[in-house]
């Protein structure tokens, strides 16, 4: 029988999970962080199974989620987000380049930034740090740590280190960002960089639309990949139904590309249950040859009122090409925020 011996990363993970006890839970935590602070520990375990090869990969995540608003006299100065996450991979076959291999553990950064809001009452803010690249549907939906994702895979990067100007005007929301292009790590090797942004209608409305752009060199394991992309997105909410669409044209490594994405979601009245179906399509022209691929995804997420969350998703190709292969992936995740 295999005996499980915890490694240093598990000891650190255990330590992070015990922070609530060490700090005597909420009250002492609030005292430590001062006024207007929230904090939480976020833990999840995920199984990804390639249903063709029957290969199983596991991902364990443990992180801290801190949110604090700084105020002075009669105004807010800014908001600090701090989300360091320890990610431990086990038996993973394809991994982000900042992991050594499929059995590695790394400290990663989700959203960790300071948004300076004192300039114009939310109409013009300056954000500095690690944040989601403003582009398309990702801008208005929080998909961090969830199985449900949109189109960041097309661009090869979800969040990045850098600076943005952002704000909400009566009929417009915007964020324009200059970022390092290096994703999790703040590195200058190969000199990556991204200029991105989204301008859209107010996100709280039942019908929204936006225009995005994404230009720059994204760091990969073997150098950088050049991206040029223009996109449009739209969402429509009707009672418990949510319809989302995103489409883009551009170039990836000098090759013309087109991408489209659509999602239909149904949300239970208590908003504890969500099911969705996605369709994705990509087209790439290399030399004089055109390749296209498409896929479908079905998924569900159930969360209770006490921070426990279980989700499952299955992704499968509709059609694939030699340069655009899509592996069938069954994912199951359990997550708890405490």
């Amino acid at each position: 029988m295999q005996i499980f011996f915890p490694g240093p990363q598990h000891i650190l993970a255990l330590f992070l999970s015990c922070i609530p006890f060490i700090l005597n839970a909420e009250n002492l935590g609030s005292d430590l962080l001062g006024d207007n602070a929230r904090w939480s520990v976020d833990a999840s375990a995920r199984l990804n199974r390639n249903t063709d090869t029957q290969h199983n990969a596991f991902t364990y995540v443990l992180g801290l989620d801190v949110h604090k608003v700084f105020s002075h006299k009669n105004r807010d100065i800014g908001t600090l987000m701090f989300q360091p996450y320890l990610v431990s991979l086990n038996n993973a076959s394809s991994v982000p380049f900042f992991f050594d291999d499929g059995d590695d553990t790394q400290l990663t950064w989700r959203i960790t930034n300071f948004n300076f809001t004192a300039l114009a009452q939310g109409r013009l803010n300056i954000k500095l740090g690690h944040f989601e690249i403003p582009y398309g549907l990702e801008y208005q939906e929080d998909t961090n740590g969830t199985l449900r994702q949109f189109t960041f895979g097309d661009r090869g990067i979800k969040a990045d280190w850098g600076m943005s100007v952002n704000g909400i005007l009566p009929y417009l929301e915007y964020e324009i960002a200059f970022t390092r292009g290096s994703g999790n790590e703040l590195t200058s090797s190969h000199n990556p960089h991204i200029f991105s942004g989204r301008i859209g209608s107010p996100s709280q409305k039942n019908i929204t639309a936006g225009f995005s752009w994404f230009y720059g060199d994204v760091l990969t394991g073997s150098g950088t990949t050049e991206h040029k992309k223009l996109g449009v997105d739209a969402s429509y909410f009707y009672y418990q139904w949510q319809f989302m669409f995103e489409s883009s044209i551009g170039q990836k490594a000098g090759n013309d590309t087109q991408n489209s994405f659509a999602e239909i979601a149904w949300i239970g009245a208590k908003e504890q249950f969500k099911s969705y179906m996605q369709l994705g399509y990509q087209n790439i022209k290399q030399m004089n040859k055109k390749d296209s691929a498409s896929y479908w995804v079905v998924g569900m997420q159930w969360q209770n009122a006490y921070g426990f969350d279980i989700s499952a998703q299955f992704k499968h190709k509709l059609n694939a090409a030699p340069t655009l292969n899509i592996e069938p992936d069954l994912s199951i995740q359990m997550r708890y925020r405490l």
Binding site: P20, D65, G145
Partner: peptide, 26 residues
Amino acid sequence: AKLAAFFALTFFMLTITFPSQAAFCS
């Protein structure tokens, strides 16, 4: 074994700690 250890820890926490809501970045 790792998965079992993770869920044992999670359920232990579930029984004795306070819950939290959606990620604060939202």
